[in-house]
Design a protein around this nucleic acid. Sequence first.
RNA 1: GGCAGCGUAGCUCAGUUGGUGAGAGCGCCGGAUUCAUAACCCGGAGGUCGGCAGUUCAAAUCUGCCCGCUGCUACCA
Length: 506
Amino acid sequence: MSKPRFYVTTAIAYPNGRPHMGHAYEVVTTDVVARFKRLDGFDVRFLTGTDEHGLKIDQAARAAGKPPKAYVDEMVAPFQALDAALGISFDRFIRTTDTDHKALVQALWQRMAANGDLYLGRYEGWYSVRDEAYYDEGELVAGDDGTKLSPQGTPVEWTVEESWFFKLSAYQDRLLALYEAHPEYIQPLSRFNEMRAFVAGGLSDLSVSRTSFTWGIPVPGDERHVMYVWLDALANYLTGAGGLDGEWWPADLHVVGKDVVRFHTVYWPAFLMSAGLPLPKTVFGHGHVLNRGEKMSKSLGNVVDPAAMVERFGVDRLRWFLCREVAFGEDGSYSDDAIVERTNADLANGIGNLAQRSLSMVAKNLGGVMPVRGEAGESEVRLKEAFMAGSEAYFAAMNALALHKALDALMSMVTAANGYFAENAPWALAKTDVTRMAEVLAATLDATRRIVILTQPFMPSSTAQLLDQLGVSAELRDFSGLNTPVAAGAQLPAPAGVFPRITLDS
RNA sequence: GGCAGCGUAGCUCAGUUGGUGAGAGCGCCGGAUUCAUAACCCGGAGGUCGGCAGUUCAAAUCUGCCCGCUGCUACCA
């Protein structure tokens, strides 16, 4: 029997600066989903990468005195290094400058053209180079000296250029029908409502080429034009699927920031419909993570380098924090204090302590040999019930992409296990009833094993260490091994703390 | 301006179709304990459920208005 497939992507990052926490957040959460699906028996393909064309890159390269390709080659390195530091389990890191991608985008263009959806027109308006966008007269604001500025306060100039257009307006009904038939296409619900309202309000045709710069993929048959960056960028998901008729297409899940939901839920499906291709199943718009509740900006001086955070707190602490503290789909905020507090409470005091206290008793009292479980008494039944409920909540939450709720469920299991341990006080039993002590330890160890197996998507590296200590063999670490306890009599390695408490001044 | 959503303990949030004394986690305080990373376990304090006015036997939960915040979107100069 072949495994079911699951194709998941992040948005691709624009490497005109250093990666920030937003990138880290997106790749971590998507990685969690990818790992969860693998453990749950899916054959997963996970795509991430960089969006390397466009005017801003061209200009930045010029400013740096480098050809654009050489420039992006340099700029991409920190993104790849960050992915490595974060333990991102992607199957391909796509770059829109990859040769197979260029070929694919041109083939996609030709299919859309063959369908009669592309036509040559003229684009004019107030253009902001910085924003890489046109604005209507009415959107402009006046600068201090009376000059016209974009809503973002950047300079604009009146620009006229020939452009190819995509007949987006022709797709309004089909998009609305898509939303109607597949409300799960856009998540969370708040984004769905916004996008449906946007489309219902009417669509204008979309300019999809530029002549004002050359750093992009040429339009087939009209080499004066390069393709509009979004057409180029969105098509990366097809390239990563193996091409126009790639074996991995359609994607099951695009994880993107809430700021680019429109491109993924309006333009992208319209492009695909035009090319006669299947549509992705779900686009999930996550929120933004803010530093102490404030947007990061250079002027505020609160720009945080996620690689430095990894260095400081450790990958798994950062991964845990981002998934646990921020409701997936909502905005959230982070701070050093919050990370320390959260991870000490959950990891050091919770999961880590549970593992350490039970393992060390087995090491000291039973020579590190996995004890035999006894008949389930009332206490064991309650533990089991808590775990069944917790496990069910965990899987429901994970499948609904409610990562934070899944961790909530996981912590309820940790609490139940710690409660079971304290209630049965095996340290007291060590003096009165060693057999019963061994049974309590066995039950606790098995509870811990289940918790750690379920935690793997979130903290792959430290859970691997814990599973080693718990004596769980490699082939029993996915979810199919959940109900297979470690055999009694197995020799466990010497336990060592995996989640030490941390303090800020260290 | 329009549409949508939000405002509940110090913090982050749950609170089905209105109805037993308003909850969870974290933080804080106390107790108990010593297996464990001064952790775990038990208990406690903390809230006029944004404001005002209504509907109702009864509203955090419905209606109206107001204040504050967020998102999407439009328009005027």
